[in-house]
């Protein structure tokens, strides 16, 4: 071995493989998403509606066993404008990641906003899902390409705060 080829380190990859399971509650949710439906789950104690549901109400520690069909409309609870490209990500910056609060839900989830100049995005703006073609639907929220603004009056997000009943 020549002087140039000598390495002063050794590679030692460490891998573990798993069969990941989403949980029975999230499985129910994803089966509905596959059909183009968003079905949240509600806590039998405090009635908070979770989407995507994880199977339990972390406030009350009980199973969220009540299914709550939701629309694909909601509002922007919070957002950030991404200017830095992420390697492998096909979306060209600047683009918007937003916390989406669907109507009737008590938590929000992260998704993309498109179809509007990023400078015009604001908290409280009404939005609706833009779905991929039906034949591309899988068990994933990526069935929704992004959310896009709709012509409805803004919502005061302070009113969305969950008050325990």
């Amino acid at each position: 071995m020549s002087e140039e080829e000598k390495k002063d380190y050794a590679e030692s990859p460490i891998n573990l493989e798993y069969h990941y399971t989403a949980g029975s509650a999230t499985t129910r949710f994803l089966n509905q998403v596959k059909e183009g439906k968003i079905v949240g789950q509600s806590c039998p104690k405090c009635s908070a509606v979770y989407v995507p549901p994880r199977g339990s109400c972390p406030r009350c520690g009980v199973a969220t066993n009540i299914e709550v069909p939701l629309t694909d409309k909601g509002c922007i609870e919070s957002f950030t404008i991404v200017h830095i490209p992420i390697p492998g990500n096909p979306i060209v910056p600047p683009y918007v990641c937003a916390m989406i609060r669907l109507d009737g839900a008590n938590i929000s989830f992260l998704h993309l906003i498109q179809g509007i100049d990023v400078e015009e995005i604001r908290i409280g703006m009404r939005i609706q899902a833009v779905w991929k073609p039906k034949d591309e639907w899988t068990h994933s929220l990526e069935n929704i390409k992004w959310f896009t603004p709709i012509d409805e009056p803004d919502v005061d997000v302070a009113t969305l705060r969950f008050e325990e009943s």
Binding site: T21, A22, G23, S24, A25, T26, T27, R54, G55, S56, G61, V62, A63
Partner: peptide, 16 residues
Amino acid sequence: NAGALNEVELIMPVVH
């Protein structure tokens, strides 16, 4: 093999 049951769904019943 608890299958689809995740950890939270295993813990909740015993605590309750």
